[in-house]
Design a binder for these strands. Sequence first.
DNA 1: GTCTATATACAGATAGAC
DNA 2: GTCTATCTGTATATAGAC
Lengths: 210, 210
Amino acid sequence: MGVAVEEIRAPGRPKSEEKRREILKAAVKLFTEKGYEGTSVDDIAQGAGVSKQTVYSHFGNKEALFAKAVSTKCKQSGIDPDLIDPDVPLRQMLVELGLRFLGLITSPEAVRVNCVCTSSAETHPELGRLFFEHGPVQTIEVIDEYLVTQNARGRLAVDDTRQAAWQFLGMLKCEAHMRAQFNLTPQPPSEVKRYVESCVDMFLRAYAPK
Amino acid sequence: MGVAVEEIRAPGRPKSEEKRREILKAAVKLFTEKGYEGTSVDDIAQGAGVSKQTVYSHFGNKEALFAKAVSTKCKQSGIDPDLIDPDVPLRQMLVELGLRFLGLITSPEAVRVNCVCTSSAETHPELGRLFFEHGPVQTIEVIDEYLVTQNARGRLAVDDTRQAAWQFLGMLKCEAHMRAQFNLTPQPPSEVKRYVESCVDMFLRAYAPK
DNA sequence: GTCTATATACAGATAGAC
DNA sequence: GTCTATCTGTATATAGAC
């Protein structure tokens, strides 16, 4: 009998690693779409093109897979710091930031991730914190820093920049985000723009240098 | 044999009505605590002290009972309009309203109801609208109206009172509400008070009469 | 109208062949 | 490591007695 030709493998567990990625990808997709209870391990296995047992051998149980999937997703929210340009006129920059921010948080995917994280915050407190730190807090820090530089240039007179950052984003977010969350018809872009400009102007009046 | 003494009944279906109320009460409690998927009809039947079949004969199926329960609950959110007193000094009134509002929306129960409504908004669009109209919108209208009266008295110069109401509540809500939603340690009352005052002062600077 | 008992489906998780 | 087949619990919903 001939010697069995064994498949040559790269170091580590190449085949296994690919399946692991596929499982995680499917899990992220399904959990963020349908939530924890609404997603079965069978669904994930099918979505990843593997058997259920393979899912279990990689991640142990459904809970552990859920935590892994959501924490993976959480690290992809937040606003891009590169948007900030301290030399652009203040009002223009704030309007731009506001519109980007609203676009980000009202996207269907962001709404779903947010929803899953809040739903599971009671049973998985670490997920609530993870999402909060990587999404909202990270964005607040970007705005905070920007306000500090504009303060230094004498364009603003903000005493507590972090508070002001929360005020700015809170103002912007409220109605649009709720409408998205509750699945209502979104406001037309013209109205969103009008609202953002109203917020920016109001913010600038309140924090104008004396 | 003696004539059977039949229980005297008020018109309608008195006994049935009481069970119906008990079922609805238990359903509201459980659905708002554990969500749709996390609550079984068995749990509700047990919570109401009736059999499962009684639940079905009253409400048909789980979906219908859920819709009924959540819509019942939605009609109990929102801020009390009687809090408004147009004669109280403006700043004091806004701080008072802000603190009440934050207390209301960060209560564990309100957070849960909010969470259940957002989670089920995709499958039950009517629940999203119901909650939005009875909670947030109702509160906005109370603030809006208040701003109109203060405008008329020359204490404010708000051009668009509805926008300003959203700005005010949005600002207040943002961080505290998120912390509650994501199950993080709440801010100490002193910090909340400081933030509310900061928001009110900022609002008053932006909308001060010329 | 209300109950107990049951039909049916599907979930999470595991056993054992390859 | 990966698959198919299966165990076990529990869910929604219904049938039939009283």
